[in-house]
Amino acid sequence: MQQQITKKQLRKKILEQRKSLTKSEWQTKSDRICKQLQSSSLFNQAETVLAYFSIHQEPDLSPLFTINKKWGFPRCVNQLLVWHSWQLGEQLQQGLYNIQEPLINAPLIQPQAVDLILVPTVACDAQKYRLGYGGGFYDRMLSDQQWQNKTTIGIVFDFAYLPQLPIDPWDIKLDYICTETGLY
């Protein structure tokens, strides 16, 4: 009988694989993901988009931030994500986990204003479950009633788009997954 790989083991494996990408491979794959998003009606019709600043060689979405949308980025506050608006050129600060964040006094974005959430992932599967870093920030947010009907797209490289992930009862499915070769 084959032993199931744990989330922790899988996370470590995928992060090592991501880390092994050359800067050029990473940028090329990231640019292709941005092109996939730009060619989707989900992205084009959205006015307020929540995104993330890339860490640990996550797909880099920064080329999209020049597009005329209302952009929101998270700050980690008491184990929750609080969303602030941010536009290219505005100041950022180093936040929890060394992630760039909008300044604390940047305008808040309320859930009812949000059209689309681009969700960072370590891995995703064909059932649209995601593997994150293990902090539960996005699962907590997406299980909250005010966020449940928001369209979500998990952002992941092809090699981390897997047939099936180990899942727990609290894991929240995403609506779509975007890789450098398609939107699923």
Rank of each mutant, 00 (worst) to 15 (best):
Leu88His: 12
Gly89Asp: 08
Glu90Ile: 04
Gln91His: 07
Gln93Arg: 15
Gln94Thr: 07
Gln94Trp: 05
Ile99Ala: 08
Gln100Glu: 09
Glu101Trp: 03
Pro102Gly: 07
Pro102Glu: 10
Pro102Ala: 09
Ala106Pro: 02
Pro111Leu: 07
Val114Pro: 00
Val114Ala: 04
Leu116Met: 04
Leu116His: 01
Ile117Asp: 01
Leu118Gln: 09
Leu118Asp: 02
Leu118Asn: 06
Pro120Lys: 05
Pro120Glu: 05
Pro120Met: 11
Thr121Ser: 13
Ala123Asp: 04
Cys124Ala: 15
Asp125Pro: 09
Ala126Asp: 04
Ala126His: 14
Gln127Leu: 06
Tyr129Ser: 07
Arg130Ile: 04
Leu131Cys: 10
Gly132Trp: 00
Gly132Asn: 03
Gly135Pro: 10
Gly135Trp: 00
Tyr138Asn: 01
Leu142Ile: 06
Ser143Glu: 12
Ser143His: 15
Trp147Ser: 03
Trp147Glu: 03
Gln148Ile: 08
Gln148Ala: 12
Asn149His: 13
Lys150Phe: 02
Thr151Phe: 03
Thr151Lys: 14
Thr151Tyr: 04
Thr151Ala: 13
Thr151Cys: 14
Ile153Glu: 00
Gly154His: 02
Ile155Pro: 01
Ile155Gly: 02
Asp158Thr: 10
Ala160Thr: 00
Tyr161Trp: 14
Tyr161Arg: 12
Leu162Trp: 06
Pro163Arg: 10
Gln164Ile: 06
Leu165Asp: 05
Pro166Tyr: 15
Pro166Val: 14
